[in-house]
Computed example of a mutant assay.
Amino acid sequence: MSFTYDTQVALATAAALVNTARDDVDVLGTMDGLDAFLEEQRFTGSRTRAESELQAVRALRRELEVLWFAAEDDVVERVNAILRRTSALPQLVRHDEWDWHLHATTPEAPLADRMATEAAMALADVVRGHELDRLGACAAPDCDGVVLDLSRNRSKRFCDTGNCANRTHVKAYRARRAGTA
């Protein structure tokens, strides 16, 4: 299945958001951390920069992590709840360097609502395409990050939070070398 570009970006942003709390490090521990995350993800729209906004995004992170590993019926129920809660009203928009894509909230909606709605709309596409198996956990034994596999052959096993793939491959290589020495 091939997802539209905005769906891929929303899914990648959702995975990146879930992965902001890994290995006892919370990237969203401060407002500066949230600012950096939003800039890295190129997230637009209004901001209050209030502590409540930061807490709402952190709560969304937990909500999306639960969604990432939920069964299909539970994903559907939770996605629908997000869309109802945020009063989603999908509309085609074009702005900045983006061509036509869907927004389901206004740019003035609360940040966490905009982020939740984009993730929910993307997850709705995942469910409709029967592609929930593209959401998974990092294969590195020392990582609890999530993985979004958009590869054609469904071969992505490691998260994008650091160097899990490289670290795992080096460890395996060294173990093989130690066995032959």
Rank of each mutant, 00 (worst) to 15 (best):
Thr13Pro: 00
Arg62Leu: 08
Asp142Ala: 11
Ala137Gly: 11
Leu123Thr: 05
Leu83Trp: 04
Pro141Ala: 10
Pro141Lys: 05
Asp133Val: 07
Gly136Cys: 11
Leu67Glu: 10
Gly136Arg: 06
Gly45Asp: 14
Ser151Cys: 10
Leu132Thr: 15
Val170Asp: 11
Glu63Phe: 04
Arg157Met: 04
Val66Lys: 12
Arg154Gly: 14
Thr13Leu: 04
Cys159Tyr: 04
Arg177Cys: 06
Phe43Trp: 15
Arg94Leu: 11
Thr4Lys: 15
Ala21Asn: 10
His95Lys: 11
Arg58Gln: 09
Thr86Trp: 06
Arg58Ser: 03
Val66Ser: 13
Arg176Phe: 08
Glu131Ala: 15
Glu40Phe: 08
Gly129Val: 00
Ala112Asn: 10
Ala178Tyr: 09
Cys164Thr: 07
Cys159Gln: 04
Val93Glu: 12
Val126Glu: 01
Asp35Cys: 04
Leu132Trp: 06
Glu63His: 13
Ala50Pro: 00
Leu11Gln: 01
Leu132Phe: 08
Asp74Glu: 14
Asp160Cys: 01
Val25Ile: 12
Asp149Glu: 09
Met31Gly: 06
Leu148Pro: 02
Arg94Val: 15
Ala112Trp: 08
Val25Leu: 14
Gly33Tyr: 05
Leu111His: 07
Glu108Trp: 06
Ala50His: 12
Ala10Val: 03
Pro107Gly: 12
Thr117Ala: 15
His101Pro: 01
Asp6Arg: 05
Asp24Cys: 05
Val18Lys: 01
Ser46Lys: 13
Asp99Lys: 11
Asn19Val: 02
Lys156Cys: 01
Pro141Phe: 03
Ala165Tyr: 03
Arg157Pro: 00
Val66Asn: 09
Gln8Thr: 03
Glu72Gly: 02
Asp73Lys: 08
Arg114Ile: 13
Glu40Ser: 14
Arg62Met: 02
Leu60Ile: 02
Lys156Phe: 00
Phe158Ile: 00
Gly29Met: 07
Leu38Thr: 05
His103Tyr: 05
Val170Gln: 10
Leu92Gly: 09
Val25Asn: 11
Pro110Gln: 12
Asp133Glu: 13
His95Asn: 14
Gly136Met: 09
Ala120Arg: 03
Leu11Glu: 01
Glu65Cys: 07
Thr44Ile: 11
Val76Ala: 07
Ala36Asp: 11
Thr44Ala: 15
Leu28Ile: 02
Ala71Ile: 01
Asp144Lys: 01
Leu83Glu: 08
Leu83Thr: 07
Asn80Gly: 02
Asp73Gln: 11
Thr48Asp: 12
Asp73Cys: 01
Ile82Cys: 06
